[in-house]
Design a binder for these strands. Structure first.
Length: 530
RNA sequence: GCCCCCGUAGCUCAGUGGAUCAGAGCGGUUGCCUUCUAAGCAAUAGGUCGCAGGUUCGAAUCCUGCCGGGGGCGCCA
């Protein structure tokens, strides 16, 4: 496809530097399947009208297999159309690829880490955490489908002031004393204290807050893992913040920054010199490192010591301010900051009835993920999050997600899959195999349209992987489901016409493969029956 | 004050590094089940793409400035 256009380069190369040759999909099917806008871009440097250029180029085009006519359209497009016979022939490779259909080797086994969720082990996952969890997981899935070597990591903040307060709060609850200033007042900690008390007393008769914090984190992580499991999310590794402070890695890193003149002591604290108007604290006056300090050690560890080419971090939008300074510190350490990509996931508000409740991490209030999973189930949670781009604020409509009815967009896609599965089962004996000649019977607008949509699937996966935009999968799935429903409505599959039946069953099989793979990449179930 | 995200149909949101259409779902109105699942299909109403300039043959899309909503700018996490 692209190579075909390269062939014309020689013709124009003499004049000037060529703009990139781009073959894009047409937005309007009336204009064919692909279009080239090169003539419009060349018009100025060639000093010829774009239409003339288009005609000369079109005449020289060597089309690869599968393309029918080349058309010129004002003001200077070259439009290409796929041959129906070529479309039909693609059903065979889709069938052969099966669950592999849509995968690519784009990533060439490059090691990439996706770090997501990373909620503190001092309380349950809130529903607001789930958006980042889903986005991170699907980014990981899409990268895996593009043959990146992906590791999913959960970064556990298991040290510092918050953990100390956590332990002290647990102790206070057990002893029925007041929770310390700034401590954890939540019901969760109260219940946890009660649950841990017998073991805690056994392990530490004095109820050492450190032991309590340890037990509490262990317990909390267990429940977090369980919540994530229900969303079909599993991390390969839980990385402990405390492991960064082994006395060598941290010492070496600070030494490196110091040698570059980027560390100063002032007011009893240790600062990273940004060179901008405001420096950043690395070590507080009480000697404890800040999160920023840990972030530096952590990302250096991933990108330098552990050898990941890229680290894709999924953060809440409220951490936006940290991106710049972590990247800056990495650069000082000689690490290309572009290797760290931060996906900022915007906040979620929950709509229940007519009421919208904003969920902010800071506000600390909100529905837990567990409660939401109990109420609506994992499929709507995943699908709804994927129906929004990560950088858009979104409103989660609980009532809609909960509806087991046609209004719920999840079912639209799942129903398309179930219908196909049903037809395939119904017609099993009639469609054992179809030859290429039979496939020629597939010539209605609905059948050809369905094929066109299916054939975009590999591009969708690739684009989602390149842009790190998992919502593209959901929008594609919706389109594909629409094409399937229209086909189903207008083309009776199982009839007395055996060859036609066989051909249509082949189409159903390919379509089910495609939508099944799409749902699978999103981690949404694809039922055979609804 | 500075930085980031958003502003597109009544509602929730796609599209946005130019040309080739302003779109989907929900909600409104109206049709379609003797045949493989109507959790579906089809039709219809509904929008100065926040405002104002600018660049261009062409701007929802790029630039500038405003307005509005959200988030950040801690020796908090």
């Amino acid at each position: 496809m692209r190579q075909a256009v390269e062939n014309i380069d020689g013709w124009a190369a003499a004049t000037t530097v060529l703009p990139a040759v781009v073959v894009e999909r047409t937005q309007n099917p009336q204009h064919g399947d692909y279009s080239v806008t090169l003539p419009l871009k060349l018009a100025r440097s060639l000093r010829q009208p774009p239409l003339v250029i288009a005609e000369r180029l079109a005449g020289r085009l060597e089309l690869p297999d599968g393309f029918a006519e080349v058309a010129i359209a004002a003001p200077g497009f070259i439009n290409l159309r796929l041959l129906p016979s070529w479309l039909r022939a693609q059903l065979v490779p889709i069938k052969e690829a099966g669950t592999q259909w849509g995968r690519s080797s784009l990533g060439h086994d490059i090691p990439v880490q996706v770090e997501f969720v990373s909620s503190n082990p001092t309380g349950p996952l809130l529903f607001s955490h789930a958006r980042g969890a889903v986005v991170g997981d699907v980014v990981a899935r899409v990268l895996e489908a593009s043959r990146f070597k992906v590791q999913r990591e959960y970064y556990v903040n298991d040290k510092g002031r918050q953990i100390r307060l956590f332990g002290e709060s647990l102790r206070a609850r057990i002893l029925d004393e007041p929770v310390p200033e700034g401590g954890y007042q939540s019901e969760y900690v109260r219940d946890l204290a009660q649950e841990l008390e017998p073991r805690a007393r056994e392990m530490s008769s004095s109820l050492d807050p450190r032991v309590l914090a340890e037990l509490g984190m262990e317990q909390t992580m267990t429940s977090i893992r369980e919540d994530l499991r229900r969303l079909d999310i599993k991390h390969d590794q839980e990385f402990l913040e405390s492991s960064l402070y082994d006395g060598r890695w941290d010492g070496e890193t600070w030494q490196e920054l110091r040698s570059k003149g980027r560390v100063v002591e002032r007011d009893g604290a240790v600062w990273f010199v940004t060179g901008a108007d405001k420096d950043e604290v690395l070590f507080k006056r009480d000697g404890e490192p800040t999160y920023f300090a840990s972030d530096i050690l952590y990302h250096r560890d991933k990108l330098e010591r552990r050898g990941f080419q890229r680290s894709i971090d999924v953060w809440g939008a409220d951490h936006q301010g940290q991106v710049g300074r972590v990247k800056q510190a990495l650069e000082v350490l000689g690490i290309d900051p572009a290797r760290l990509q931060v996906l900022l996931v915007q906040l979620v508000s929950v709509k229940r009835g007519a009421e919208a409740v904003r969920m902010s991490r800071r506000a600390g209030v909100g529905i837990t993920l567990k409660e939401m999973l109990d109420e609506v189930g994992p499929d709507p949670v995943r699908y709804f999050f994927l129906l929004r781009s990560a950088d858009a604020h979104m409103q989660f409509d609980v009532d809609l997600a909960k509806q087991q009815s046609s209004d719920n967009p999840v079912y639209y896609a799942q129903y398309a899959h179930a219908r196909l599965a049903n037809v395939l089962a119904f017609g099993a004996d009639a469609g054992a195999d179809a030859g290429v000649s039979d496939l020629e019977r597939l010539d209605s607008e609905w059948e050809l349209e369905l094929m066109r949509v299916m054939l975009r699937w590999p591009d969708v996966v690739r684009e989602a992987a390149e842009s790190l935009e998992p919502h593209r999968l959901a929008f594609y799935t919706d389109e594909l489901a629409a094409a399937i429903h229209r086909f189903y409505k207008n083309c009776r599959v199982v009839t007395d016409d055996r060859p036609l039946t066989a051909a249509r069953l082949q189409l159903c099989l390919a379509a089910r493969t495609t939508i099944g793979n799409a749902l699978g990449l999103m981690g949404v179930s694809a039922p055979d029956r609804m």
